[in-house]
Each structure stands twice: as structure tokens, then as C-alpha cells.
Write a protein that binds this DNA or RNA. Structure first.
Lengths: 241, 241
DNA sequence: GCCATATCGTTTATCGATAATTGATAAAAA
DNA sequence: TTTTTATCAATTATCGATAAACGATATGGC
């Protein structure tokens, strides 16, 4: 048990960066659980943890120098998003269906955003100017080949719509999918046309502006379905393993 | 701190029933967290905890004779469903928007089940015979005025469709909404015609059977929207308090 | 040799205690 | 009197340790 310490400790140094690099949210709140979740999320999506890998709570806790409790809570959060599966007394594993699971999210996003768009369109509560602004941001980012920026603007775009629906539960659930982190990963897929991806948001704006809630909601869903057909990002990421 | 013990202990006795009465799921898994969540859920939905009430972890832990940890996890689960809100270091409160929140769920269920129905219809993966069976069960229950049974069959009905979609994430999310517990509450509303509620599922079966995924998904969503318009069950429950 | 059973190690689930943070209160200064 | 600051109490977030459960392994009977 003690012989692992050197290895783990050396790894801790490299993880420190990963640990400090807060994605975007305020880091005043629930630091440990939140940050742990973020790191684990990146590792899973990034392929550092392979499908089927077991995640032992105490081991992770030791690695980050924390206690078991926050790790446990982080894992539980991840379980809700389907990225890990934990059987009652048998431990937590990275979902076997990972590549499948990564694709599954688009159907769920589609469902939530379809409804959100419908509600927001009916209520006319969307800040179209802001959406336009984010679209511009996406275009600029796409032109500059800046994945991170593109992802950020995209997330803001979609979040704005979801929030405009005025349904907290819907917003909560959407947020729990960790769209922020996943979006970046999605864009890493080879062969994706960034500018096209950015521009595809135009249709959504137009549909919402038209006031036709059924059309708008359909467009929003189909927007997600487009990504569903792309190859799994994970596969591509593994190339350097 | 010790002077509360007598009161708490006496209350524990009455809660023991509530604590043992497992709704329907297997109780082999994660007993404490699960059961605590269930009890708290019932209290919130049943009105024992009022909107804005503060839920102090240690107090609840003492009440049930457990430690803080499982309570914490239960509360966190509830937070995901929007029934409680917890600010970082300030504690957990029953959502102020409770009556609002209770209604919000229908839009979310609508979103998820709309998509699930669409997918299941396209895949033709629905066990229509089972749906028919559950519908019969609902009719029998409605005739006998058996809320619990009606709720159980209804949940099985909808769950079957959601699972038929073959998207685990979707299923997970749907399950996290605690439909099981909430459905019973919904039916407690005065003035709801149980037989009509049961029969309304017929349309869903028919739509799925028709193979028209767009129609089916729309019917599924509208099915939820119907309940959205009903008065808040919470109000009615208070009558025997 | 094969199957049933007991023991063992590993890991989770839970516990009890501590540290740290927040809001409120009270005291002091202007 | 008002404002500022220091202290307090209450509660969460975290910790370290223990207990219980599960799978695997070893042991004994057949």
C-alpha cells in the first residue's frame, strides 16, 4: 500500500495544473467536490481512464490528498451523467458503453433543448441579440481555429435558450450533463468543419425569431442530432496513447 | 444538545414505519442513502416540510440515528431534482418555488418522454403487449379507487417506453426525477378523474402502434402537459395536517 | 479430483470528530 | 447615533477510522 505512494505523489505534481485550471465557473463554491468532478470528467472524456476501468475511491482520494468523502460525492455526480456506473457494494467503473454513452447525450440534449426552445419561443423570452452575439463569437473562434472559445460561445448560446424557458428543473438537468466540458471534446473530432458548426446555429436563431414554436423546437433537436452522427471523439483522442 | 434526544427519539418511532415502507425498488442496494432520500422526498411532497424550511444535515441525521454523510448524499440527490436548493456553505432549503417546481416536472417529463417515445417508435422496440397490460392494470386500479396501484402501473407504463428508447442516459435522468414517488402525489389531487387518467394512456399506445414517430412523440408530450394544468397537489394534501 | 464451506483481503458505506466558513451580535470608535 | 470591527454561535465541508459486504482463495469433506 505504501509502495504506491511515490508513483502517486509524482503524478500529483502533474495533476496540480489540471486541478487548478478551473474551467469557467466561480471557484468560491464547493471547491473540492466540484474540482474533483471536473478533473475526473476530463480524464474520462479525454481517455485517460479507459472504459471499464475501476475507480477506487480511496485511491483517488490519496492521489489528490483529500479524503474519501469528496471523491465519493464527485463520483456520484458523474454517475448521474452516465459516465460512470457504480454497483452498490462493488465499486465504480467507467461506463463500458462509453463511446455509446458519449453519443447518448445528444439525444438527451436534443430532448431538453427541443422543449426549452419550444417554451422559450412561446414565451418570446429569448434574448435574440445575445444569441446573435454568441453566434458572432463562434464565427470568430472558428475562423481562428480556437476550439475552446468556440465551445464557450456555443455553451453560452445553448444555455441562454435553456434558461429562457424559465424552468429551473430543466435548467438544472441540462447543467448536470456537463455540457461545458463535453462540448470542447466534441469539437476535437477530426473532420468537423468548425465554421459550419458555428453557422449551424443561425437556423436556430431564425426559427426562434419566426415565433413558430414547433418549427423552432424541431430545429433545435435536429441541431443535436447532427452531432450524434459524428464519430466518437474518444476514438480520435486515443491516437496518441 | 442532549435535551432534544427525548423528542427526537419519540419521533423516531413514528418514522420507523415511514422508514421501512420501501416504495417499490429493491432494498438490497444502498439502503441508508436511498431510504433517507425516500423519506425526505415524501415529507417534502407531502407537505411535512414547507417551502423555505431549512434542512439541517446533523439534525436529520440525529433524527434517524444515522450519521451526517448519508443525509448529505440524500440531500444532494434531492437537489438534482430541484426539490431542495442548497447554497454552498449556507445550508439546504426546501425549494421556495415548490408549487412551481412541482409543475415544472411535467415539462421535463414531457421533454424526456417525447424523445423516448420518438426513439422507441422508430426502433419499434416497445413491448406493446406490456403497455396494454399496464393500461388494464390502471383501469382496474382506477375502478377500485386504488391510487397506489394506479400510480405503480402508470410508472411501469412510462418507464417501459423510456427504457425502450435504449438510451441509458435518458433512462437515468428520467429515473432521477423520482417519478415513482411523485406520481402518487399527483393523483391525490381532488377532482381528477382516475378512469380518465388511466384511459388517456390508450392514445399513447395507439400512436406508438401506428409507427408514426412524430405523432407518437407529440402525444406523449401532450399527455404530460395535461397534468401540468392541474392544481398543485400540495395544497390538497394539507387537509389532514 | 470435485464441490461445499470457511477465511481473508479489498473496498465501500458509514461513523464520529475536527476544521473552516458564514451571518449575526455586540462592542468600540467616530 | 451611526459605522466599523471583533467575536460568537451554528452549520457545513472535510477528515480519519471503523464496520460491513463482496469476491476470491484456501480448506476440508466426499
Amino acid at each position: 500500500m505504501t509502495e504506491d505512494m511515490s508513483e502517486l505523489r509524482s503524478e500529483r505534481a502533474s495533476e496540480a495544473i489540471e486541478f487548478k485550471t478551473g474551467s469557467d465557473t466561480d471557484f468560491v463554491n464547493s471547491p473540492l467536490r466540484q474540482r474533483l468532478k471536473d478533473v475526473l470528467l476530463r480524464r474520462i472524456l479525454g481517455g485517460a481512464y479507459k472504459a471499464g476501468d475501476r475507480l477506487v475511491e480511496l485511491k483517488i482520494a490519496q492521489e489528490f490528498g483529500t479524503s474519501q468523502a469528496p471523491v465519493r460525492e464527485a463520483l456520484r455526480d458523474l454517475e448521474a451523467t452516465g459516465l460512470v456506473i457504480s454497483k452498490p457494494r462493488r465499486g465504480t467503473y467507467v461506463a463500458e458503453v462509453l463511446s455509446e454513452g458519449l453519443r447518448e447525450i445528444y439525444a438527451v440534449r436534443g430532448a431538453l433543448e427541443e422543449q426549452a426552445t419550444r417554451l422559450a419561443t412561446v414565451r418570446q423570452s429569448c434574448d435574440l441579440a445575445m444569441l446573435e452575439l454568441e453566434l458572432q463569437g463562434m464565427r470568430v473562434a472558428a475562423a481562428a481555429d480556437d476550439l475552446t472559445s468556440l465551445a464557450e460561445h456555443s455553451v453560452k448560446f445553448h444555455r441562454a435558450i435553456v434558461e429562457a424557458a424559465g424552468n429551473r428543473l430543466l435548467t438544472n438537468l441540462w447543467a448536470s450533463l456537463n455540457i461545458e466540458t463535453r462540448t470542447t471534446i466534441t469539437l476535437l473530432v477530426d473532420g468537423i468543419d468548425l465554421m459550419e458548426a458555428a453557422n449551424s446555429h443561425r437556423q436556430i436563431i431564425d426559427a426562434i425569431a419566426s415565433g413558430d414554436s414547433e418549427r423552432a423546437s424541431r430545429v433545435a433537436r435536429e441541431h443535436q442530432e447532427n452531432f450524434e452522427r459524428l464519430p466518437t471523439p474518444n476514438t480520435k483522442l486515443r491516437k496518441d496513447t
